[in-house]
Design a protein around this nucleic acid. Structure first.
Length: 358
DNA sequence: CATACGTGGAA
DNA sequence: TTTCCAAGTAT
């Protein structure tokens, strides 16, 4: 296998071939500027990169449009109400991202004069910005020659250099190889081109090597092993958990709570529940004594590391306000704007549907 | 280094 | 139906 030093002499060819490909095939995305043109607004680069963490382009586009319309810059986002921003993020997942998004916007305004730091090292000190996002913003918005390594780039680079070490152990080697082929000119276009390539031709399954612009440079293609790279450790099985949520209804309103900042769906609105979690079932204890009736049906929801079966129990009897957990009455007719994460959105639909039948 | 942390689409 | 996994970060 070629050393990183030996690889470096090929970097110009790889970058040139890739940038030429990008010039013809770049996807037109709302947070992008066309290939070879001045960089986009750093605020939009940052917002899109955070939204795109572990999230598909298709899922992000609508959220990006909504956020930039409501909060077009750091100042407006920093001044927004937490609950409004959290609700606008609902459904996108990984909710620590939106908590850190607000922290970051406020830090930019209060500690950085309203503008992002212009280097990857400076960016990486901000909440929610790790090694990938720092490098991506620095390269795309500020033209820094930073090595941008996401899952797409890991796959492309592992194949280019036939790196057979399994992930995550291979990360150090992959990052060095990425750095060696990253050009000083147009590093942002190069990074986005690598990610576009990984998202299209250099896919996990059935890579289209025969029409790949880097085919001539690809060691894995030469060895006939492209589809087998990168190697990864096997995944663990997801445990099954069960829990109960409590549907408390009065005068066409339902009682919603705000979840603790830490842990699952942290900081988001939700139905009161019996504290189910990844390690244990809920305790089935209702928040107060009442005539609880099981709602027909259940919600099955799959999280990253466990599968939850959520049952629903409802009460509409006269309710002692003092016995309710901290929360708020939410009008049933505007439940869509409550910003419920998908688990509770499913549960609410179940409850509403069941009550209509009765 | 391992684990917690969402969601929906594709095969 | 099941499995994989996507522009990762924080701890």
């Amino acid at each position: 296998m070629a050393s990183v030093q030996q690889r470096a002499q090929y970097s110009g060819d790889i970058a040139s071939a890739l940038l030429a490909y990008y010039g013809r095939n770049a996807r037109d995305l709302p947070w992008r500027s066309p290939p070879g043109t001045p960089p986009p607004d750093p605020y939009q680069v940052w917002l899109s990169e955070v939204m795109l963490q572990q999230t598909t382009v298709a899922a992000v586009i609508g959220y990006f449009e909504n956020f930039t319309r409501r909060w077009p810059d750091f100042a407006s986002l920093a001044a927004a109400e937490d609950a409004d921003v959290m609700a606008a993020w609902a459904g996108l997942g990984y909710y620590s991202r939106v908590r850190n998004l607000l922290k970051c916007a406020r830090a930019v305004v209060s500690d950085h004069g309203g503008a992002l730091p212009r280097t990857a090292a400076g960016l990486a000190k901000l909440p929610g910005i790790g090694p990938y996002t720092a490098a991506a913003i620095a390269a795309i918005a500020f033209n820094e020659r930073a090595a941008v390594v996401d899952a797409n780039v890991e796959r492309v680079v592992a194949r280019l250099f036939a790196i057979e070490t399994p992930l995550p152990a291979a990360k150090v080697e992959i990052r060095a190889a990425t750095d060696a082929i990253t050009p000083a000119r147009r590093p942002g276009d190069f990074a986005q081109a690598m990610m576009d390539l990984g998202a299209s031709l250099c896919s996990v399954r059935n890579p289209q090597c025969l029409i790949c612009p880097l085919q001539a440079d690809c060691a894995a293609q030469k060895a006939g092993m492209a589809e087998t790279l990168p190697r990864k450790a096997a995944k663990k099985a997801k445990p099954d958990r069960a829990g109960t949520a409590w549907w408390i209804e009065r005068d066409d309103h339902v009682w919603l709570v705000r979840r603790p900042d830490r842990g699952m769906l942290g900081g988001m609105r939700g139905l009161p529940d019996d504290r189910w979690n990844a390690r244990a079932d809920g305790d089935s204890q209702p928040p107060f004594a009442a005539d609880w009736k099981a709602v027909a049906g259940e919600v099955v929801h799959v999280f990253t590391h466990f599968r939850l079966t959520l049952r629903l129990a409802a009460t509409a009897a006269p309710i002692d306000e003092n016995s309710l957990p901290p929360g708020e009455w939410w009008p049933l007719k505007s439940l869509d704007s409550a910003g419920l994460p998908t688990l509770f959105s499913k549960a609410a639909k179940l409850a509403v549907r069941a009550s209509r039948k009765v």
